[in-house]
Design a protein around this nucleic acid. Structure first.
Length: 211
DNA sequence: GGCCAGGACACCA
DNA sequence: TGGTGTCATGGC
């Protein structure tokens, strides 16, 4: 938690996920796969301008039109399919995303179900669970792996083991779950991109590269 | 002009 | 299990 507070102190609350609705988080989670958020914002704006950010409307939208609207986010052919798939899953099983958030199913079950959807991998599923459904479920991404490997705090490569490492070491608080992942992303975007610039890094006396 | 971005999946050995 | 190619746009 020391690292969390350092990051929080340095960058402040990130207030993730930037979205107006739970379903918008789901859409963003698909669109941001290996894509910078700025490009995702354009795609989401296109959908929003046409008032299409609703489950039923995405389902009823023609595939080609959906592709052209999300084009700025890249990988638009597969992402259009994935959006349809995850939306179909939500509508068929829960009606809509708000209703899904009310589900009393354990997080593990929800996670397994999300992972069964084509195009929803671990990080996407975990992002949806945490930021769309308000489940205490840590999101691991490449930034997280890179940073904590560099810090010498993990040597694991296995996603679920890293996830458990965080979940058993951080405060059991939803906002901490949300902020921590966001802060890691923010930190890595700034100073941890390729080689760590430890001399001006706020985590410098933890980093094994300068010990 | 090359590299990277808030990944997932298919295919291969 | 682990490595590699593919998907594609936009910023730097």
């Amino acid at each position: 938690m020391d690292i969390y507070y350092r990051l929080l102190n340095a960058y402040g609350y990130q207030n993730w996920w930037p979205a107006e609705t739970r379903y918008e988080v789901v859409v963003g989670a698909i669109l941001t796969q290996n894509t910078s958020w700025k490009n995702v914002e354009r795609a989401i704006k296109n959908l929003k301008d046409k008032d299409l950010l609703k489950e039923e409307r995405i389902l009823n939208l023609g595939l080609d039109e959906l592709k052209s609207l999300i084009k700025p986010a890249g990988f638009y052919n597969i992402k259009a399919e994935r959006l349809k798939e995850v939306t179909k899953f939500i509508v068929n099983n829960y009606g809509d995303t708000n209703n899904m958030a009310l589900s009393k199913e354990p997080t593990e079950i929800l996670r397994r179900k999300l992972l069964s959807v084509k195009g929803v991998g671990k990080e996407t599923a975990d992002s949806i669970l945490l930021y769309a459904l308000d489940r205490k479920n840590f999101v691991v991404d490449n930034y997280t792996k890179r940073l904590f490997n560099r810090l010498g705090l993990i040597s694991e490569k296995d996603y679920d083991k890293i996830k458990k490492f965080f979940e058993s070491n951080i405060l059991n608080d939803l906002e901490v779950y949300k902020e921590y992942h966001a802060l890691i992303v923010e930190h890595c975007k700034r100073v941890c991109k390729k080689k760590p610039k430890c001399e001006r890094c706020i985590l410098n006396n933890i980093c094994r590269f300068i010990k």
